[in-house]
Design a protein around this nucleic acid. Structure first.
Lengths: 197, 197
DNA sequence: AGAAGATACGTACAGTCTGTATGTATACTT
DNA sequence: AAGTATACATACAGACTGTACGTATCTTCT
């Protein structure tokens, strides 16, 4: 048949795939594990063997979704010749990625509530924040902005998260993203160092 | 003894009071209703009579907490002679209020996850957003900012929420709030209308 | 003032769901 | 080829929400 490692990865991937959709559709609390594994032709035994708990499964789902977003953002936020261009492209990529329901529900809404906000921030779960921290630091290094960088990063992170959620309900998503990126650009202009320090 | 209406309000208030603390401490999912009502010397019968469901109780808790924050913000965001001063004072009041654990956990983390983000936004639950919308509109009317006001409001709302959560873990909360309000002020400066339109 | 109804609970029970303990078959190791 | 580890299935225990129903107290209407 198949090697054990193959089987393991196949099963894990399948469960994570189904779980991602279910969690996005019904939310963490609204998903019954029995249902979930039935769709894969398995029982809860398999799930508990691989993931240990419902939270363990959720965390695996989160990590995969985060990786997807991170990749898209990193890819977008490079190749421009200016730091600000990179940064804004990263913001745009994040907002594009957040159009997917699994990103919004799982990463933006349920994630911090299920795993706890502190764990969410401390662990490697909220990688978006890390990338944003780095981006803000680069902006500061390049002299585009100055100020309390931690605060700036937190404000921008929350701002992007919220606008991602709001924009998902808009009629024209692209227009909403354009508008958001534009407002971010203007906001950053307000953070420009005052000349003559 | 007591009139029926009095008894009703007493019981409801007591349950909501205890529930607020419990939800803030353990999160929505971590609270067992049996435990909760036992602290009030009641049984779950009383709870289901008054609130109908666990979500119903949570919603009552949310509404009371929201009312408290809204009052603080409204009170702070008035009396200044300039619109921008009002607005920033409101932001500051929101951040001060968010130092209370029940505001953070219940209103910022669990609320949208438990009641669903859409219901949260649609209903009268996220009143902070409404106040912020109004504040942004006033800023625009006064000529302090211009642009896509919905987008600006969403960005600011998320920004304040996130910074409230981050700042709660800082050593010096007041300094964190000062820094955040200052960054918001500068960001708004970036949204100032360009002269000569 | 007394009867009829509404209200504020308590009690008991059913259903659902997570988690764990254990069994079994198949792949891997030596 | 025998033993071990692994990938599951099965069965069971425990916790929790929600509901149906009973009861006592207050309210209202005549």
């Amino acid at each position: 048949m198949a090697t054990k490692a193959e089987q393991r990865e196949r099963t894990r991937a399948e469960i994570v795939r189904i779980a991602t959709r279910r969690f996005a559709e019904s939310g963490y609390a609204g998903v019954a594990l029995e249902d979930l594994v039935a769709e894969a032709g398995l029982t809860r035994g398999a799930l508990y063997h691989h993931f240990g708990s419902k939270q363990g499964l959720f965390q695996a789902v989160v990590e995969q979704a985060q990786a997807g977003v991170a990749e898209a953002v990193e890819h977008a936020a490079s190749g421009h010749d200016d730091v600000l261009g990179d940064f804004l492209a990263g913001c745009r990529a994040f907002l594009e990625a957040s159009l997917a329901p699994e990103v919004r529900r799982i990463l933006l809404v349920d994630g911090p509530a299920v795993l706890g906000w502190d764990a969410w921030r401390d662990g490697d779960l909220d990688t978006s924040v890390r990338h944003l921290d780095a981006g803000v630091a680069e902006l500061a290094d390049a002299g585009v902005i100055d100020g309390e960088l931690d605060t700036v990063a937190a404000l921008l992170s929350g701002a992007l998260n919220e606008v991602a959620l709001v924009n998902a309900r808009a009629h024209d998503h692209e227009r909403g993203i354009d508008a958001a990126v534009d407002v971010v650009r203007r906001m950053l202009r307000g953070l420009a160092p005052v000349r003559g320090t």
